[in-house]
Amino acid sequence: MQPIQPLENEKYYHIYNRGINSDLLFKENSNYEYFLKLYDLHIEPMAETYAWCLMKNHFHFLIRIKDKEEIKTENVIQPSQSFSNLFNAYTKAFNKKYNRHGALFERPFKRKGIENENYFQNLIAYIHNNPVHHSICEHPLQYPWSSYISCISNKPTKLKRKEVMKLFGDIENFKYVHELKSNDVSIDTFF
């Protein structure tokens, strides 16, 4: 078994995981909404989010772990523990709602450090195009459970939209790159 990469402050990560045995994580809209509410509670205080996508049986997040001084909570929890708290809280609620028991997520959750800007940009497009790759829709704009719509919107968001747009140059190039990447599934072998 490979050693688990620790999550370090001030570093960028692709965080992803799926349901145990590829089981469903999200059965209805309220599941997605509750998971995002828990994400906001457990992850937002210690990480910045650049892209995300929730699929029926897996998810992807592109985050930066904040510097310790940026974390504005009294009890600073290790980043891996924050994710564990998120997954445990969601699993308890999911199990109660659907009268099931046991683990819901594969362990350990996957994490990959992001070291260069090109990969960072490609990963954003990959995450947003995940529903396209899985033939759920034809364009990421049609899928409600990703950060694509937040990226192109003017509505308030905790997503690091300005930083994402700066990486792509502008909104038109953001859209163009996503169109180019809509048929590209070769970013990585995630599962």
Rank of each mutant, 00 (worst) to 15 (best):
W145F: 13
Y126V: 03
E172I: 08
D40V: 03
N122C: 15
L123E: 04
I171F: 05
Q81E: 15
Q121K: 14
N29R: 12
Y90C: 00
L36M: 15
T73P: 05
K92M: 03
Y90E: 00
Y126N: 02
N173S: 14
C137F: 00
L104M: 02
S150F: 13
K155E: 04
L141C: 12
F59H: 01
V177L: 02
F83Q: 00
D23P: 05
E33Y: 07
Y13G: 11
Y98I: 01
S150R: 15
N88K: 05
F35Y: 15
C53V: 04
Q2F: 15
I187Y: 14
V185G: 15
L86Y: 01
K92N: 02
L54I: 02
E179C: 05
Y126K: 00
N129R: 01
Y148I: 02
K66M: 09
H139S: 04
S147A: 05
V132L: 00
K166M: 09
H58W: 11
K160V: 07
H178T: 04
D188L: 10
Y143L: 00
E28S: 10
A103M: 10
I20L: 14
H134W: 00
F87W: 04
M46Q: 01
C137I: 10
R111F: 06
E33K: 11
P108L: 13
E69M: 11
P131D: 05
N122A: 07
V177D: 00
A51L: 01
K66Q: 10
L7F: 09
Q5F: 12
N99L: 12
L167V: 00
I15F: 11
P140R: 09
G169M: 06
L123Y: 11
Q81P: 02
N85T: 09
Y148Q: 02
P3V: 13
F120Y: 13
K72E: 08
F94V: 06
R18L: 06
K11I: 00
R18T: 11
I71E: 08
I114Y: 12
D23A: 12
F190E: 07
N29D: 14
Q5T: 14
Y176S: 10
I171C: 09
F120K: 03
Y143P: 05
L7H: 01
E70R: 01
K110L: 09
N99Y: 02
E33N: 12
I152M: 04
T91H: 07
P144H: 04
Y39A: 03
N173W: 02
K66S: 05
P6G: 01
S82F: 04
Y13E: 02
C151A: 11
V76P: 01
D40P: 09
C53M: 01
S22C: 13
S147T: 09
E33H: 12
E33S: 08
N122W: 05
G102M: 03
L167E: 08
D67E: 15
Y148F: 15
H101G: 14
F168Q: 03
L123C: 10
N129V: 07
L25E: 09
E48S: 14
